[in-house]
Design a protein around this nucleic acid. Structure first.
Lengths: 229, 229
DNA sequence: ACCTGAACACCGTTCAAGT
DNA sequence: ACCTGAACACCGTTCAAGT
């Protein structure tokens, strides 16, 4: 064995908020929401549980730091992608931001749950600012900008929460198609008397595209906003 | 002291899923999300922690039962209110359902967090069915019904999550006006360079109406849906 | 069938003690 | 200033034992 074992963390580097957040993200990605404990985290960082408290006040702050780290990447990455993309209309900018969040949640399922519960922390505020600027650019009357941006943000966060919830239902690593066909089967077996609508759309659920449906919702709100002008 | 002390729970009644759910709701209302523990619950029910597990599989199921109990009341109450209300258009029915959920969350802040994380449990499905029927009644083309109902549901659940998060930030019992002015102050102090939009709307936040803004979002989506016909 | 309550494994957090 | 790790209080859950 000439290949040296690679540890994700080196013992020599000093602890820092950034390294802690990074390790937390790794742990959340690999082991899910339940996998992030101060003990597991300190083991990965080769230190004691108490050491982490020197840099982070408590678990909420730890989760916020992890959320912030991932979403910062997502928001900067998708505005970059926008440059080489379709026409730079405000509508497309809103779609790009929304999809950036959606894809980040897809890659880190725990992120959805966090975004849906943290509210008004720095992460959500940055997202709100992002959306608000585009709403302004859309030419929405001043007195309707707040409501419009709010609607978009809340819709995005709602989808975030539901995606996270769906991810938690299934064992980690289940493919998206499997999740959909499992859920579709549940819907198809509902009492037709009590659930006529859901049974009707059960077939559509099986082979629909989450991402496309998410975007359809964004477009619906954008159409509503357009009607304000 | 001739007045007899009234206990919320009588020792004599047998345990049941319903009584457990009821007591859980009471505990959540009084002590918040952190107040619901099997020990506290069994103390209130004058029994042992193990007894609860005979009727409820685990804590997730306990929370689901509590959520279900509250939302069932909300959904039946608001459809009743609809009868004596404004014209019975499908739009108004959607508004009534949405406001029913909003007000239920207002009365039980923990409900928002639950709705935002449970997904596809019976509670959310019933809400989805409710909305879907009205979308159908709106005359939305068949192939757009699923997306439209999804958008409405996700928006409602997004607001649910954010309201719950806001409630958790402030100490329990803080008035809505206090929450808003505290948050407004945070917004007004943001760096004007990084957060021009949010600083702009900070003033609107202070004396805005959560409920009205929620309804504005619903109307935005309804306007988007109307544009599909 | 239903309830009791001690016990288990685990968690967030603290803090005296070290360097 | 920063880290260590034992200790505390508490939690979800189990299960042998009771009725």
């Amino acid at each position: 064995m000439t290949t040296r074992t690679r540890h994700t963390e080196r013992r020599e580097e000093a602890l820092s908020r950034e390294r802690i957040a990074e390790a937390a993200v790794e742990l959340l990605d690999v082991a899910g929401e339940g996998g992030l404990t101060f003990r597991a985290l300190s083991a990965q960082l080769r230190t004691g549980p108490g050491a982490i408290y020197w840099h982070v006040a408590n678990k909420d702050e730890l989760l916020a730091a992890a959320t912030d780290a991932v979403l910062t990447d997502a928001l900067t990455a998708d505005t970059a992608a926008l440059a080489g993309d379709a026409p730079g209309t405000p509508e497309n900018a809103v779609r790009a931001v929304a999809l950036g969040v959606f894809d980040a949640i897809d890659a880190h399922p725990w992120l959805g749950a966090q975004l849906a519960r943290v509210a008004s922390m720095s992460t959500t505020l940055r997202l709100f600012e992002c959306i608000g600027r585009q709403v302004q650019a859309l030419g929405v009357p001043e007195n309707a900008q707040f409501d419009s941006a709010s609607a978009l943000l809340n819709y995005i966060l709602g989808v975030a929460g539901q995606n996270a919830a769906n991810a938690r239902t299934q064992p980690p690593g289940t493919s998206r198609a499997d999740v959909l066909s499992a859920e579709s089967a549940v819907w198809a077996n509902l009492d037709p008397e009590d659930y006529p609508f859901i049974r009707n759309v059960a077939a559509q659920l099986r082979d629909h595209d989450d991402r496309a449906q998410f975007l359809a919702g964004v477009d619906l709100i954008l159409a509503g906003i357009a009607s304000l002008r």
